[in-house]
Nucleic acid binder design. Structure first.
Lengths: 301, 301
DNA sequence: TCAATAGTGTCTATTAGACAGTATACC
DNA sequence: GGTATACTGTCTAATAGACACTATTGA
């Protein structure tokens, strides 16, 4: 099909049409990316015997400008005309966490009319998972006021209402972000309405302290996705250092899923994804643990 | 935190800042929505005994303007400044298929720099599932040259290359769209690269006949998502009429998954999602089949 | 009667959950 | 020796796959 030589109703070829095309006549939104950069830290060790607890951490930036001056926001920025959305996300990741070549995934594009008070802003959110040992220590501690916050995610109310031919399901999620004395909280209401042949999910921020824009909503979405995907993919390994013990791996799963797992079943399920090494942990105050590495070929063996 | 009264480095309050904010100084992309509207049709009945086969159908529109004049594209349009992306998608759905209140889900936002030859266009794709019996028959047959195309999706080559610390996996997908004499084809190459701690998936169109823009890529993504989600959610019911037989339901699963299923296991698995009625099919040329309806409450019983 | 679909029963294989029990370092 | 974690074995429950077998209609 030679569209190059076809003429439209004005008698123009494609080339002629494109030369005359004026994109400036329409008003256009701004497009940004918002990055959800997660990692896992060890908390303080309680005593020489206890394993240190793990915590899920999210990188936030203190806003130095209006709007939401002084509040905390997801790192991100405008997508320029000469880069793809993906490239913009990579660029932000590099500039905020100084990390390249890691796991990154587009989550959702947020397009409510009034989500930014400045102007119409449409934002694609990306989730990135990084291994804390590969992190540039500078990042998260520079002049830009970037900080790692410990994430807590909790469903604290569920309500089901039966409707004619379906039901409405309401969940209240409480998200808490902590960095030293700084404590940010947000409550997000997720409403799932199912009636007849329709299903609609809406997310609404019902309370937010210290968090800018609609970022609590985006965090909620991201954590939900992370919790889901960790169950049926191998993305958790992007949070791990090259060598790790199965107990550490289990701790990472537990902190993300927010529940305890049984060691036997966990090991059985993850066995095909890892390769054992001959190395062990040392100075543990208890039986040493074998170190493993990720086996990228696990799916087809 | 009273951000309303805080002043920034220029001594402005948030309100003053917003009043002076000039969004026009940055160049901005256009934002559009692309709709993947799927339904299922019965094909011709071979003889009075055989059940009619089902086919998965996708709504496409013949382009009446440059670029890609004369080729077929996904329905869609620009997101205006006064509507959310979601509202734009709903509006397109209403205008193309004359359907409101149905299943719709955001898939992915495509943001390559040169995906539209006119100007920088970022596009959010939405998948909608409709029941053909609820369809306005006019839709898909109007002046706009909208047509339902039968979708065929086939993996026709898989190649795995072991790399140091990982592998590269390449799949070639052939998508065929058929409406009477019109036959559109496209080949999409999906490359998954896993090395060390990175995983990257890229999609590339390696051949496309009659399909506009990068829409073959978007279709590939949508069909993959549809295949995935039908296995662990109840979205398939949005493709069904209010009353249906379990065999029809199974046919819908089979045509989407591209493989045959065992009836016993299928019925066991779907039993909780449906409620039986006292009605039966008639004039079937074989044993009549009980009619069922969707049970929206299946998840919590 | 028979072609074609509708629907059920049951055996097997696989996987997840539960939990007891053994192993082993360091202080 | 005692404490805390590391790791394994095994019973059970739940689920998916395979397939045979019975049921029922219209022409």
């Amino acid at each position: 099909m030679m569209t190059e030589t076809m003429r439209d109703r004005n008698g123009l070829t494609e080339q002629e049409f494109l030369q005359r095309y004026d994109a400036s006549i329409y008003e256009r939104p701004s497009v940004t990316v918002d990055m959800l950069i997660f990692t896992v830290f060890d908390k303080e060790q309680v005593n020489y015997r206890k394993l240190p607890e793990k915590s899920l951490q999210l990188l936030l930036i203190k806003r130095g400008e209006h709007p939401y001056l002084g509040q905390w926001a997801l790192p991100g920025g405008f997508v320029s005309m000469r880069e793809s959305i993906e490239e913009a996300a990579q660029r932000e990741l590099k500039s905020e966490a100084n990390i390249e070549n890691l796991y990154m995934e587009q989550l959702f594009t947020w397009g409510d009319v009034a989500r930014d008070p400045r102007t119409r802003v449409i934002s694609s959110s990306y989730m990135a998972l990084v291994d804390r040992t590969a992190l540039d220590v500078k990042a998260g501690d520079d002049a830009e006021d970037a900080r790692w916050f410990e994430v807590n995610y909790q469903v604290f109310q569920e309500k089901k209402t039966i409707l004619e031919g379906g039901y409405e399901f309401e969940r209240l999620i409480k998200i808490t972000l902590k960095h030293e004395a700084e404590l940010l909280t947000a409550t997000v209401k997720i409403t799932t309405t199912i009636t007849g042949r329709t299903r609609r999910i809406s997310r609404e921020i019902v309370g937010s302290h210290g968090l800018a824009f609609d970022h609590a909503k985006i965090m909620d979405y991201a954590i939900e996705r992370l919790r889901n995907k960790i169950e049926y993919t191998d993305i958790a390994f992007h949070l791990m250092p090259p060598l790790f013990t199965l107990s550490e791996l289990q701790q990472v799963y537990e902190v993300i899923l927010g529940k305890e797992l049984l060691a036997a079943a966990f090991r059985r399920k993850l066995a095909p994804m890892v390769t054992e090494t001959n190395e062990f942990t040392k100075d543990a105050g208890h039986r040493p643990s074998k170190l493993y590495r990720f086996n990228p070929n696990w799916e087809n063996t």
